[in-house]
Design a protein around this nucleic acid. Sequence first.
DNA 1: CGTCAGCTTGACTCATCTCAACTAGGGTGG
DNA 2: CCACCCTAGTTGAGATGAGTCAAGCTGACG
Lengths: 247, 247
Amino acid sequence: MASQEMAEPLDALAPCSHARAESGCAVCKVWDVSVCAVLDASEPGSLQAIAEGVHYGKGETILLQGDAADAVYNIRHGTVCLYKLLPDGRRQIIGFRLPGDFMGLALPDQYPFSANAVEPVSACRFARSAFTSLVNDKPQLLHRLHEAATHELRLAQNHMVLLGRRTADEKVAAFLIGLRERWRRLGGSLVTIPLPMTRQDIADYLGLTLETVSRTISKLARSKMLLVVPDGVRLLDPGRIKALAAS
Amino acid sequence: MASQEMAEPLDALAPCSHARAESGCAVCKVWDVSVCAVLDASEPGSLQAIAEGVHYGKGETILLQGDAADAVYNIRHGTVCLYKLLPDGRRQIIGFRLPGDFMGLALPDQYPFSANAVEPVSACRFARSAFTSLVNDKPQLLHRLHEAATHELRLAQNHMVLLGRRTADEKVAAFLIGLRERWRRLGGSLVTIPLPMTRQDIADYLGLTLETVSRTISKLARSKMLLVVPDGVRLLDPGRIKALAAS
DNA sequence: CGTCAGCTTGACTCATCTCAACTAGGGTGG
DNA sequence: CCACCCTAGTTGAGATGAGTCAAGCTGACG
């Protein structure tokens, strides 16, 4: 589908493990916010030794629910959406992964969800077997993973409240505020929130339809709380949006 | 509220740490399905050494969102519901805990949710500090906790699909089938599903209203898929209910 | 025997969905 | 360069699943 995008320069690094000196942890912009930071990057037997750089074009599938789970990933650039499908095609996005996020905390035999690049993505790929033995070797890595898992669990619980008990307006407001906070931690702006995902993606994340998401954003724009800009929104009145997101 | 229920015989064991020979892990019916099973019960410095038996009457609050998280729990008997409240009182139940389940996988400074006994509950209480140092001592316990955390995460993700993308009928059917499976693993029946929680609890778990839950169950009963019995339902046609729960 | 909490059922409302038309921007090929 | 197409987004009008409000039922308990 978007395989032509794989032909971009980034891709050249992927199969070249010798190039890692320039592309490795030392120059990784998200190393310190990742699970990686718990191990010394230069240490032999570190994560870097088993990392493989991989790249995906916009719209490409990274992994598929039900496939053998033979790798875990750490996102370096781009945005990924994780989703589950019902047999009739209804989709629920269970989360977006931004740079620095880890994918594959649970290591069951099969992936319990699918993952898609919503914009061009580069990531570190760790073979499951090598990663598992590293985890067994390094208790601090297991500790860090557990921390990450419980953090995600808390996010998931918050999202359940959103899905089960909030109105469309509140859902959209909470989504924007939450995303702003995540971009901010990665050094992003406080006013302009990039929205690389489509309205359909947002809808499938919030348990709404794309029309409702569009209408709600238009409504917020009409009441001067935000401004719709290409590939994002600019918050004009974060206070009122936060109040809507109520928590 | 239900403090009079605390006067039942069970309660007598709680403050008596010497009685643990009869009440401890050796006689615990859920020991082998709990996180506890990873440590030898007789081993000095085991979980048993730091466990304290606690009991709660029906409706009693076990912990409150925002309170200092100074203990974790393992449920021995009874059913607990975990929930979050929005400022205006809307409630989302994020899960039910049955015998053998662990409460407090995440160990943040404050509980991220509240917990209520929906029927009389007895549990093992572990002081957070003692539990934390035990976890640091025993890597296999950390490993087990991580396993439990990722398991819960997967359940949470499934529940997000339910909350965001399923109809009322599907929600109720999936709830019943899921609960049946959990009771079954604890040695319960395959046809009669105990429902110790109220319709309101079920509604707050499924993102519905109590009226909708009641109507939906009535509808399933009218179409001969189940029979409503006191404090539960009896599945007459698990196949069709499973089909409704679709996944 | 009265009260009360939990549950059921009915009638009506409304937030969100569905279906559909229309617009805007980007890429492609003649 | 223009004509065309295609995807993403917006907006409107009408349908509907679930919510709201209200009445009544039932069993437990004092």
